[in-house]
């Protein structure tokens, strides 16, 4: 009959995280913060211009993923929650990329030296 798989669990499962695991994730976040700071002080422009920002964003994404998966329990959540998390970033990407496709093509070479 109907799809009831989404209702099957009476309570969202909650026995996956233990205090040591929470502390572990927390330490990852602290290390990430410190890493962000020191990565920002090193001039990475010799790789390509804007490399610093890319590194900073990569670390931020990692930290965000940790918070979402483990602190917000997305890892053990139904598919709908995964989907809404992914969808919101997809729509952000639409907003960023479609706005920038205008700005970046208006006068060529905005990002080039």
């Amino acid at each position: 009959m109907a799809e009831y798989e989404q209702h099957d669990h009476d309570h969202i499962e909650h026995d996956h995280m233990t205090i040591p695991k929470y502390i572990g994730i927390f330490l990852v976040l602290v290390v990430g913060t410190i890493l962000t700071y020191f990565a920002a002080t090193v001039d990475l422009d010799f790789i390509f211009p804007g490399a610093n920002t890319l590194v900073a964003l990569l670390i931020a994404f990692t930290k965000m993923t940790c918070v979402m998966l483990f602190f917000m329990h997305v890892y053990w959540s139904p598919r709908m929650i995964w989907l809404s998390a992914v969808a919101s970033f997809f729509w952000l990407a639409i907003m960023f990329s479609y706005t920038m496709q205008d700005y970046l093509t208006r006068d060529p070479g905005v990002f080039s030296p």
Binding site: Q101, D102, T105, R106
Partner: peptide, 16 residues
């Protein structure tokens, strides 16, 4: 994905 069609003549790039 189509909002730029309100801005064809308002200074948006030709590519966009």
């Amino acid at each position: 994905l189509v909002w730029g069609h309100h801005m064809f003549v308002s200074g948006q790039s030709v590519y966009a």
